[in-house]
Design a binder for these strands. Structure first.
Lengths: 154, 154
DNA sequence: TTTACTGCAAAATGTTTGCATAAGG
DNA sequence: CCTTATGCAAACATTTTGCAGTAAA
């Protein structure tokens, strides 16, 4: 489940995005992978990094996340709560949001993607080029302490 | 296109939501209807109301929008930009987001809703009750000055 | 060596809170 | 009346900015 990314690989990706691979950027990027699916704010990334990197500054984390988002190394996550949240780029474009616990969970579903792509091919969007389609399920966990699981019935 | 809501009707809805229908709440609610589809922030609502209601305070607008959202009179709109945005409740759960102009446009599509509802009935969501499904199309307007139009081809 | 990035601190924004006064039911 | 909402100002939180010093390429 927890995937490992070596710093060398992360460094490479930062360089490929056209940015200098500073130590701060590498550890921010690493933290985003470790927190993948948790959609942290700049503050949360900063708090996670601080113990090990005492000299890092919050301003740098803000700037770093901004530049990552601009270069599409990470994506900004939609939020109703009104703070900027980030996630390491990945394939899951869909989110499940629990309005009780405020959790935002990633949700990947190939079949859903395919369905939507084919749906929007049949729609004629004049003057708009679709870059991505994402679905947000809002609702409530029946048992806040348990996980949500999704299986196909059919 | 621009739909009219009399203050009496708005007042009625506020009361039905279990809130006292103060003048401030009525004009905030009215502004949200007038700005429907524009997804304003508290600040934007405040600026709109100020000329006609010089005594209204920004704090009240914040509190009002909060209580409206809590009572589900209005909905909070998802944003990547990290500010709280609101909209009068309506049937369109889908948004089209232009990453160049930062516009968020409402998009209603019965057929899409039906497709998704039936899709998720076939998925077995353990421990989660879906309240609403919304689709976000991210992309770019080809001509920033023109409107986006959507037609069915098939 | 040159350019771009960092850290720091201050400023700018955005949002919430507490409380005395005012208004709704 | 009694309760709840308002306005105001202060507190708090979040994000951006400017700049001198530092590190990457």
């Amino acid at each position: 489940m927890e995937q490992h990314y070596s710093r060398d690989i992360l460094k490479q990706q930062i360089i490929e995005a056209g940015l200098k691979a500073t130590h701060q950027r590498i550890v921010v990027y690493e933290a985003l992978h470790e927190l993948h699916g948790h959609h942290p704010t700049a503050e949360e990334v900063f708090q996670r990094l601080r113990p090990v990197n005492p000299s890092i500054s919050l301003g740098t984390v803000y700037k770093t996340l901004d530049s990552f988002a601009e270069r599409e190394l990470v994506k900004r996550v939609l939020s109703e709560e009104g703070g900027k949240r980030y996630d390491a780029n990945n394939l899951a474009h869909n989110h499940i949001y629990c309005s009780n616990t405020k959790e935002i969970m990633d949700y990947q579903d190939e079949e859903l993607e395919a369905l939507l792509v084919s749906f929007f091919q049949k729609r004629n969007m004049e003057n708009f080029e679709i870059k991505s389609i994402s679905v947000q399920l809002t609702g409530t966990k029946k048992d806040p302490d348990k996980q949500i699981s999704i299986t196909r019935t059919e």
